[in-house]
Design a protein around this nucleic acid. Sequence first.
DNA 1: GTCTATACGAAGATAGAC
DNA 2: GTCTATCTTCGTATAGAC
Lengths: 202, 202
Amino acid sequence: MVAAATRQQIVEAADRLFYERGFEATSFADIAGTVGLSRGNFYYHFKTKDELLDAVITHRLLETRSMLDGWEAKAEAPDERILSFINLLIVNQTKIMAHGCPVGTLCGELAKLDHIAKSRAAELFDLFRHWLSRQFSAFGREAEADALAMHILMRSQGVATLAAAYRDEIFVRNEVENMRAWLAAQRPGTPVFPETDSRQHS
Amino acid sequence: MVAAATRQQIVEAADRLFYERGFEATSFADIAGTVGLSRGNFYYHFKTKDELLDAVITHRLLETRSMLDGWEAKAEAPDERILSFINLLIVNQTKIMAHGCPVGTLCGELAKLDHIAKSRAAELFDLFRHWLSRQFSAFGREAEADALAMHILMRSQGVATLAAAYRDEIFVRNEVENMRAWLAAQRPGTPVFPETDSRQHS
DNA sequence: GTCTATACGAAGATAGAC
DNA sequence: GTCTATCTTCGTATAGAC
């Protein structure tokens, strides 16, 4: 096996296991076992666990960028693009109910460990934040674009956390519907009454 | 030292360290060092780490119940009581920006570890959920009380996660303000327009 | 590039003296 | 009830053969 290919396999296995079990709880032996490598050979590719974590974060950053590019290519309208973000909670529902949001849980774990890579993991949030912010600007909400981006990011994090705690599909569907309604109400010039009701529905 | 007092000291130290560093990352040596005990003596009080975790969760459940009772005693009006919950994000802002929400992060970690105590930790969420639900019922929103409770719980989790990732006080204040506005809009009979605007403000 | 063998330290847990 | 000493397991990391 070519080194680059093996390395890639390791990164992808680590990516999955870090998400499913957490960074600290995943051992080199777990990853080596998944890939079908010996523990010894592992160190030919990654000298330390932190180096591997860095590669995993880089991998996630690339994948995230590619996903955001895909959403941009798929729709011209900024609100349709933002809907792609909201729909991620549905698309990844099963995984999220089992393991939470990959970004939120990694950042949370690294914060508690006071890990050097904490700020790099937060770049994953930044990717979403700034992409969303650009969409809200294009939506005609330049002045509040960043706050709106943070708001919807906040909601997706809250939904993911409670989805994992309760494994409740109906809750997820409800909140996704609330997010869609909220988004519709953000359109400039939309009459606030009576179509958009800030009152929550069950 | 009386056994019960030492035990209580251990539980409180573990409670703090589990919150600050996480359950797995906290060793018996850390806790013993904090309390000023030898590692050996530790096992006189708790035979396993899981037993200690159980005691910590029990302790948190008691403290949470007592806090909720306090909020009920302090205000008759259900919306004022719910405001106490929202204000928790401000009262505990410093800790939350450093370590996230104690409930959300513990549930998240135990979920990844697939730990037996996961469901017990989720009882902490249940305490808030059902208390909030009762307040929304008293507020005149019986039919949607549980969904409203989940919604505000979701928001507080999302705010806590992003607060820890960005350590941004202004974001927290903004979102707390949004939560208050949302709550005001939940009062039955409140005109939706023009006072309550579902549009987000920066 | 991959393997086996092994060093080293950390952490959970136990035994037995005081 | 608290201590010291010790056992065991596991996980990171290294050395060196193939």
